[in-house]
Structures are given as structure tokens and as C-alpha cells.
Design a protein around this nucleic acid. Structure first.
Length: 297
DNA sequence: ACTGCGTCCTGGGGGC
DNA sequence: TGCCCCCAGGACGCAG
């Protein structure tokens, strides 16, 4: 499942293979993959055709091909989306959209959007100016991402994120997943970050200290940084980079997908519960609920 | 305003 | 062997 490290890996690949290229045309096989385009297929084709890719940018799990003229092609990979650069057309059962390009830095002639579960999407958008640069207008509600917040430790943006989280009575894990508070964290890295910070995922954020919330954010940024260095996490074929290569960080996960296995820190079997509809992994011994949040029986 | 659940979608895997 | 049901989850919509 692509989260920040996986999306950033893809972004870097796309920047290397596509900056300077011009989109000559597009084919849409699955209308659902461009479902957010108000004018549908015709508008999508008109907006991307003829555009030159000036840069590839990212915020959280969203990335966009910046056309350098105030417009862009936004992409979200959802659960199973892949953006694959091709030297020649490749058949794929889950190919949803193909962009044809010319003038790439190498032999790339196509960018394929492959998406088995179709939770991802492409959307031609306009960019708006923000304090962090030009971003798609459709993403103005998406917060700065976790890696930005790490770099900005101690700054007002980070303090604001910590305060906004600490005000809420919701389980800390659910808040880490809310892209409007801090972006880029998904189910895997939320579990990993909270294990590293020794915080119970079900703990209401308002029962945590400011230092604990800081630690959760720092842990999220740290684990995602490590994953980025390993090319991301690939559980199956659903995540690969833009050249189709798998990542390696799945071998370094401490709790996610390891229910019943010993906690790497204390040996206690890792527990798995459902929290707001999401599989949640934690060590019941290392990650105890704060007394203030303990259930009153 | 905040909270939490349902919905979308597909293929793989478990169970019978 | 075959079939059916459940499961995975990011973002958003909606009800309470």
C-alpha cells in the first residue's frame, strides 16, 4: 500500500524519466480512474495533451506532474496504483490510463497508470500559490507531510500540528491517518511509528503528553525515512516503483503484519485489533494505555 | 465541530 | 476440487 515513502520513490523515478517530456496523447480504459475529473474523459484528454512536464512534486501521498504553466496532472495511487514508465507499450490486465510522451530524457515513450483495485485516480488540475509553493487547488486541505514536519521541528507548523492532535479525543492512530492534520502516514507506518514511540494506538490523543505526540510524529518521520532509503514496503505486487521494482522495507517492519510474532523489543506476542475499521498491530506490553484512558469497569 | 462508520473495488486466500 | 465469503484499506460522504 503506497504511503509517503512509496510515493516519494515513485516521484523520484518519474522526475528522472519524465522531466522535459511532452505528453502527446492519452488513452483511458477505465473511466473510474479519472472519476474526479468534472468534465470526464474529454476534459482530461484536452487538459493533458500537449503539456510539457516541468517537474514532479508531492505532498503526502499525492503527487503531480507539474506542467509549469499553473496546471498539473495530479495522481493518487490509492491502495494498488502504479505509475510505470515504459520504453514500449506493455500489456497489463489492470492498465487504466496511458499517457504517450515524446522528448523524455531517455527512451521512455509511455507512462502507464496500472491500478488493480481502482482506489487511485488521476486528475488534471490547476495549481494555486501557498506558503509552501504551488500545489493543486484540490489539495489545499492536505496538511504538510510528516517529513516536512520533521525538518521543521520546533517551528510553528509543527507546533500547530502537535496542538491540533492533542486537542482531540480520538485514538491517536486514527489522527495520524488524518491527512488534514499531518499527511503521508498510512496504516503501516502509523502502526510502526506508535510501536517505536511506545504509545498504544487506541490512546485518546488528549490523554497523551505533548512530548508523546512529538515522539509519535518524529517516529513516523524516522521510520518513513528509513523505508524511503530501502525503496519502500512491498507486501506483494501491489507496490512497485516506476520501473516495476519492489521495495525491501517489509523485512524491517516491527509490528505491521506480524500478529502473534514476538515483539522485537520484549518478546510479547504482537496483538492485532480493528481500530475504526483498520487492522492495527501493537505490543500489549510495550504500548500500554495511559491510566487516564484505561477503561473504567 | 467532532466522531465514527459505511462505501467504493478487486483478487487472493481461507474454510468447508 | 470447487466455490463462496471475507479480507485488505485511502479518502470521502454522511448521519448522529
Amino acid at each position: 500500500m503506497p504511503e509517503l515513502p512509496e510515493v516519494e520513490t515513485v516521484r523520484r523515478d518519474l522526475a528522472r524519466h519524465l522531466v522535459g517530456a511532452r505528453i502527446t496523447g492519452a488513452e483511458v480504459w477505465r473511466e473510474r480512474s479519472i472519476r474526479q475529473q468534472p468534465g470526464g474523459r474529454a476534459e482530461f484528454l484536452a487538459e493533458v495533451s500537449g503539456q510539457t512536464i516541468a517537474a514532479v512534486s508531492r505532498r503526502g501521498k499525492f503527487l503531480w506532474l507539474d506542467f509549469g504553466n499553473g496546471t498539473a496532472l495530479q495522481a493518487h495511487l490509492g491502495m494498488s496504483g502504479q505509475l510505470l514508465v515504459r520504453a514500449a507499450p506493455v500489456e497489463h490486465p489492470h492498465l487504466r490510463v496511458r499517457l504517450w510522451v515524446t522528448g523524455a530524457p531517455d527512451d521512455t515513450t509511455a507512462l502507464d497508470f496500472v491500478d488493480q483495485r481502482t482506489f487511485g485516480h488521476l486528475l488534471a488540475v490547476e495549481l494555486v500559490e501557498t506558503e509552501t509553493g504551488m500545489v493543486p487547488a484540490s489539495l489545499s486541505h492536505i496538511a504538510p507531510d510528516a517529513l516536512d514536519l520533521l525538518l521543521a521541528a520546533g517551528t510553528p507548523a509543527r507546533q500547530a500540528a502537535v496542538a491540533a492532535i492533542g486537542r482531540r479525543g480520538t485514538a491517536i492512530k486514527a489522527l495520524l491517518l488524518q491527512q488534514g492534520l499531518v499527511s503521508g502516514i498510512g496504516n503501516i507506518y502509523a502502526d510502526e511509528a506508535l510501536w517505536r514511540a511506545r504509545i498504544n494506538p487506541q490512546a485518546p490523543a488528549s490523554t497523551l503528553t505533548e512530548a508523546q505526540i512529538e515522539e509519535a510524529l518524529t517516529a513516523a518521520a524516522t521510520v518513513m525515512g528509513e523505508s524511503l532509503a530501502a525503496g519502500g514496503t512491498s507486501f506483494d505486487e501491489l507496490y512497485v516503483d516506476a520501473l516495476g521494482r519492489s521495495g525491501a522495507f517489509q523485512h524491517h517492519l516491527s509490528v505491521y503484519g506480524r500478529a502473534g510474532e514476538p515483539c522485537p523489543r520484549c518478546g510479547t506476542p504482537i496483538a492485532k485489533v480493528t481500530l475504526q475499521g483498520r487492522g492495527t498491530h501493537f505490543c500489549p506490553a510495550c504500548q500500554v494505555l495511559p491510566a487516564a484512558a484505561a477503561p473504567t469497569v
